[in-house]
Write a protein that binds this DNA or RNA. Structure first.
Lengths: 203, 203
DNA sequence: GTCTATAGTTTGATAGAC
DNA sequence: GTCTATCAAACTATAGAC
């Protein structure tokens, strides 16, 4: 909680202090008092910087997305083969999802926010770059599958495993290593490469 | 909204009236007054049937999930081979996710629940049976993969594709048939069976 | 730019009549 | 089993001093 001491916060300070709060508890789960507390301010001071709670929330989400979306794509090297690029992408995606839980949860909240179509477009804005990168890769890799569905599948395999981390923990067969991004990445890569029946003869 | 007219609701009536409310707006987004309204009752009457809001919510979710997961498990016939059972399960899951948006959104809310104790209760008492069924199935199918991770992957492939339906529509390459549960099921089954490189030689 | 103080609303939950 | 009436707490937001 108490991340701040000095007063005189800028708008951006407030956004960065409160992003983890909204990521954790969602719009309805965070009060202006909560935000004020982590900023070391009173609620009244917040209303100097933002007209109301929803404006603050929208700026928090936009700020976080702008910040993180660039990092998603900088890891692809055209000099590598498509398969190696895909392997690296999956590994990087698993690491991002494991490390940046704030970003991951914020995306979940935006997907669930039923109120505004604008917030859905925020997710599209971020998701589209991600999707396009995978789409271009898999289109080069394999002509049998619909590249659109294949891209969705790859992203689903990495993201939903990461998103469901808290629930997964209570399922039979769970081991701590299942939370390691490298373990997830290797599993997804193996599954994509070989499927289920490649091992029947060799295992 | 106003789905009910007659008074004298049973517990189950209340659960079924309020499930779409919690699915749409989540725990914090629904007040006891809202629930009372769709049941045609006053908030006080609700407290005759349930000690507090959280108990009501937990029963709503548990009720919805018991109903759906029982239907899924009943479609597994031991007379079929494990692979045929898995194919049928994936197809049924895809149809459920496409048809029952309330169930799908409820699952999203549960995954975002910030109260870990609440999540644990739901996971243990509701998800566990479903997960175990998939777990037992894939354990028979293939010994190379960790059955825990493989079960999560299969569920992820079907669910996240369905959850992201509204966002997917804006991605390049989208066609309306991608929303058909049979198309999704066939794609997932093919991917699981053969992986990406089974088709390199056959075209 | 931040404070104290508070208005006005909504919330979860209860008491007691019927 | 449901009602009316209500409480105490928490909430968003505002007014005015400094």
């Amino acid at each position: 909680m108490g991340q701040s001491i000095g007063k005189r916060q800028t708008r951006e300070d407030i956004l960065e202090f409160s992003v983890s709060l909204f990521a954790e508890f969602g719009y309805d789960g965070v009060s202006m008092r909560d935000v004020a507390a982590v900023c070391g301010l009173t609620p009244a001071a917040l209303y100097y910087h933002f007209p109301h709670k929803e404006a603050l929330y929208l700026e928090v989400v936009a700020h976080a997305f702008r910040e993180k979306s660039a990092a998603l794509l900088n890891n692809l090297k055209d000099s590598d083969s498509p398969w190696v690029q895909l392997e690296n992408f999956i590994t990087n995606l698993a690491h991002l999802a494991a490390k940046d839980e704030i970003f991951l949860r914020l995306m979940q909240w935006v997907r669930l926010d039923s109120e505004e179509i604008r917030q859905q477009k925020l997710a599209v804005h971020v998701f589209k770059d991600l999707f396009l990168a995978v789409h271009a890769l898999v289109a080069k890799l394999n002509s049998h599958y619909d590249p659109y569905m294949l891209s969705m599948s790859i992203i689903s395999l990495v993201f939903l495993s990461s998103e469901g981390r808290k629930i997964r923990k209570f399922m039979p067969g769970y081991r701590p290593e299942h939370d390691q991004p490298d373990v997830l990445a290797r599993h997804v890569i193996d599954l994509l490469r070989m499927g289920l029946f490649q091992h029947r003869t060799s295992g």
